[in-house]
């Protein structure tokens, strides 16, 4: 994979394109989860999961007030870890 670093940084190689579409795919998956826990479980889908009780109220309330925040944290750290790995895989990491 060492030959990739010899390209000037402004030219997009075939691998660079694959790197970008892999990145976009990971972003899309993360954003689907992001929307599901907040807009979904926290607001719209709350009635559907209201049968699951959490300390005097229901799961949707927990997602709206705490659960989404915890999932957001997990998403950002997952993305950072996954992308730093992807950078190395495609040899596009910083020196």
């Amino acid at each position: 994979m060492s030959d990739h670093t010899t390209h000037p940084p402004t030219t997009m190689t075939k691998d660079d394109k694959a790197y970008w579409s892999a990145n976009v795919r990971i972003i899309t998956i993360c954003l689907v989860i992001w929307a599901t826990v907040s807009f979904g479980f926290g607001i719209i889908l709350r009635p559907l999961i209201s049968w699951i009780g959490v300390g005097g109220t229901d799961l949707g309330f927990w997602f709206a007030q705490q659960g989404s925040i915890l999932v957001f944290l997990a998403l950002i750290f997952f993305y950072a870890w996954r992308m730093n790995r992807l950078d190395r895989q495609y040899g596009v990491e910083e020196e």
Partner: peptide, 17 residues
Amino acid sequence: STYLMGWTGGYVLLALL
């Protein structure tokens, strides 16, 4: 709860986009 989700959820957009 909008404030709680809104003001934290933006960091996901910031970090990813």
